[in-house]
Nucleic acid binder design. Structure first.
Length: 474
RNA sequence: GGCGCCAUCGUCUAAUUGGUUAGGACGCUGCCCUCUCAAGGCAGAGCUUACGGGUUCGAGUCCCGUUGGCGCCA
């Protein structure tokens, strides 16, 4: 039998780190089992659902490379079907119209609470006669449809991640499946859709565990075959609370904008709640697919660690990203910051970006590190730079270096290094005494790529101009 | 309030399914390399496995309780 799974986000915001991880586990499971991955947008909450969110979620999924085989389906398109299913349950006597008003329910709930009883629905509309219903409707009451829960027995789940879980049926009340507006309630819509889409494995966050017994009751009432359930743990913020906006970047989009790579994010996400026996850290997508299994999923919630994600992203930039792709991505950020435009020499851009490969952890860090390559005047970045130039003999040293470089015929990295080192020796300068001021003179800062790499890329003209500029200011 | 899930270094996790000194990764500290910053290499600190009982020759692993965190239902 073909395995079928689905990812079913609500379009009430951006795709979340947590949502992305749920999607990933579903996707990996489907790909690993050569199954089908269905995408369904759960937009029954009309008030909060937006089309922008849907578009945003789809874009994020595509960006991560999680392709779906069917969909995206909109749950709202199945409303009529859901209503038919609800009517079917009413006909079968498994559901009934309830005319209790929200106010009445609230009053009763408070009474129950006051008596320290669990505030469940009292089942008072379970057996209304036709006349009673008619009377209510004449009063202008619109019924909801409630599912008739059994009064006893236990519902068992054999969760693929958590193991066996039991719920006492008597604790659950007759829950609403169709609101008076005719809109299906989440627990009902999910079951209908999962059945209609022939979902075999429901893989979702463990915040849905408590919903599962209700859903199972529905499957059984319809006589439908149960899917397997796998509840994966939540992702929490650094403070241990459920990950949300207030934890800073919880939306995938923000990571895209900061210059994270999809492969790195996928890799980080798979490590959150899943591991191989050898604790392997770096996984290519195909490796994840090959090795993924629900049995090896963790049961406990995981705290999202932006630092480790950053490290992984650096790894991917250094070791996995093709040089031409680094340049391509880097260019976008440089254009955005207006450091380059279509007139900027391409080869120069390539060389500049390549110089920072080992130093950046996100592509977004690039512009501020290389801005001086594209600016006419060198600005001193900080006090340290100032101090370096304030040291004795700097003026004289820079003048000598300028002279040496203007006549140097070899402007390659190795050639430059030889020239400058020789200059140090002839004049009896310590290398540091020379290297540091030169660095500051051409870049305005005390840190950066190797000095000779920098000089070589900048080229003779820029180097000499900048040294001259600096000397004049001293 | 009821019900449910969970509990190994600060964080993510591993542990041959009950059998050595609890392993790896991020982060942190130090050293090496070195023109700086990174990268890389090496080393170190950090977990009496939440706590308390029990079963057992033997428990991170099984059972019970407690505490705590999270979630669901309102």
């Amino acid at each position: 039998m073909t395995i079928r799974v689905r990812f079913a986000p609500s379009p009430t915001g951006y795709l979340h780190i947590g949502g992305a991880r749920t999607a990933l586990f579903n996707w990996l499971f489907a790909r690993n089992k050569k199954g089908v991955f269905v995408l369904r947008i759960e937009d029954t909450d009309e008030a909060r659902s937006t089309e922008e969110s849907t578009a945003q979620i789809l874009r994020s999924m595509e960006w991560l490379g999680m392709n779906w085989d069917e969909g995206p389906f909109l749950q709202s398109d199945h409303k009529a079907k859901h209503q038919q299913y609800a009517a079917q349950l009413v006909r079968q006597g498994r559901a009934y119209q309830c005319y209790c008003s929200p106010e009445e329910l609230e009053t009763r709930r408070k009474e129950m609470m006051a008596k320290k009883l669990p505030p469940k629905y009292n089942g008072q509309c379970r057996a209304l006669s036709a006349e009673q219903k008619k009377k209510f409707e004449q009063e202008g009451r619109q019924p909801v449809i409630r599912f008739r829960m059994p009064d006893s027995g236990v519902t068992k789940i054999n969760d693929l991640v958590k193991g066996p879980i039991q719920f006492d049926n008597s604790l659950l009340d007759d829950f609403v499946i169709l609101k008076s507006s005719g809109v299906p309630v989440y627990n009902f819509a999910v079951v209908c859709d999962d059945h209609d889409m022939a979902i075999t494995h429901v893989i979702r966050g463990d915040d849905h565990i408590s919903n599962t017994p209700r859903q199972i009751m529905l499957y059984q009432a319809f006589g439908w075959e149960l899917p397997e359930f796998a509840h994966i743990p939540m992702i929490l913020g650094p403070d241990g609370a459920r990950l949300s906006k207030r934890h800073g970047a919880a939306a995938l989009d923000e990571y895209i904008q900061q210059g994270y790579l999809p492969e790195a994010i996928m890799n980080y996400l798979v490590l959150l709640g899943w591991a191989t026996e050898d604790s392997q850290q770096i996984f290519s997508v195909s490796e994840m697919i090959e090795k993924f299994s629900l049995e090896r999923c963790a049961k406990n919630a995981a705290i999202f660690d932006p630092e480790k994600l950053k490290w992984l992203n650096g790894e991917y930039i250094r070791h996995k990203l093709l040089p031409e792709n680094l340049v391509r991505l880097g260019k976008k950020f440089l254009v955005e910051k207006k450091l380059i435009d279509e007139n900027t020499d391409l080869e120069y851009i390539n060389q500049v970006i390549s110089l920072e490969r080992e130093r950046i952890k996100t592509i977004g860090e690039l512009p501020e590190l290389v801005d001086f390559f594209f600016m006419e005047k060198v600005e001193l970045a900080d006090d340290k730079a100032q101090k370096t130039l304030a040291k004795p003999n700097v003026k004289e040293i820079l003048a000598k270096v300028a002279a040496g470089l203007s006549s140097a015929q070899d402007f390659s990295v190795a050639g430059l290094e030889q020239t400058v080192r020789q200059l140090c020796e002839t004049n009896n300068y310590k290398t540091g005494e020379v290297f540091h001021p030169v660095r500051v003179a051409v870049s305005g800062r005390t840190t950066g790529p190797g000095l000779f790499d920098m000089l070589s890329v900048l080229g003779r003209e820029r180097v000499l101009a900048r040294i001259k500029q600096t000397v004049e200011r001293l």
